[in-house]
Design a protein around this nucleic acid. Structure first.
Lengths: 153, 153
DNA sequence: ATAAACCTTAGAGTTTAATCCAAGGTCAAG
DNA sequence: CTTGACCTTGGATTAAACTCTAAGGTTTAT
């Protein structure tokens, strides 16, 4: 059995984080000491490991709650459900990736056209591009056709 | 002169967004009507265009405040300052890009090893990978050596 | 003159994932 | 029996960029 600080140290996270996960239904200690201290057993520890791995591949805590609900009832759940969560997340990650790649391309163009010297920014090509939206420097955002949410406009 | 709703419609944003930008010092209307309505002129509109373009290349509103403070005092500011902001942002974007690419790689591996069928998830390879952290499926996060902040661990 | 569409304000809510705080209880060592 | 390290709780705070609400004032058209 681990107390909260011990389990936290084991995974290099804060005790606060464990309390946070508990509040959000991800991980509750299997028991409490007489004085009310949280006591985590090996299963709790495994569950935490699962959570941290899922985080490491990009799942949000909400996603992880869904994954855990399947994990604890595996035999009555379908592979397709699990794969669906992974594929949905992959789409989200790839959408974000595309946006950031667009940012990176634009920023590189901006950086390359600027002298970067100590002289006045009066004719700075970066500022001019932001004033005039030079097509050569700031790429236009593509409009994607997939409509299935994800946006907040 | 535009009223808030008119300017918002012009750039396909919400009036709320303009009030938000004002509260955060990015854009204030150059005047008010007798009854207190915000009135934006052409310069205000240009400034808004600048803000939206900067957003489109990945700058946060805080970054944009910095950019604007240089823009309005161009002749006393150096090109190097502007380029510095761009290069810093580029580094941040590339760091995030690396993280998301790592996520995408792992998620693709997970997806590829799973049958995705309607049968029980009891032996689902995705869940197994999250339970055991299969080295072949979940890539390990590299430890970058650049120390200049940016993380939240 | 009244309804619809627009505007005003302050302030609360959203999302994500913690992190921090205060006031107090517990436990082991000396 | 006291010190220090640990634990408890509820609630506030952070960052980012809005978005919404409530309660009310203004403008325009019929």
């Amino acid at each position: 059995m681990y107390r909260i600080g011990e389990l936290a140290a084991l995974y290099d996270i804060k005790a606060d984080t464990l309390r946070f996960y508990e509040k959000h239904g991800l991980l509750s200690p299997s028991s409490r000491s007489d004085s009310g201290y949280r006591l985590y057993n090996q299963d709790d520890s495994e569950r935490l490991k699962f959570i941290l791995r899922a985080k490491a591949v990009g799942f949000s805590l909400n996603d992880i709650a869904d994954l855990l609900s399947i994990e604890v009832d595996k035999s009555n759940r379908a592979c397709a459900e699990v794969k669906g969560l992974v594929d949905t997340k992959l789409e989200q990650v790839e959408a974000k990736l595309a946006e950031l790649q667009h940012f990176a391309t634009s920023l590189k163009s901006l950086s390359n056209t600027c002298c970067g010297g100590p002289d006045s920014a009066e004719h700075c090509s970066i500022l001019e591009a932001l004033e005039s939206s030079d097509q050569h420097i700031i790429a236009k955002k593509e409009h994607h056709h997939f409509s299935h949410s994800g946006h907040k406009d």
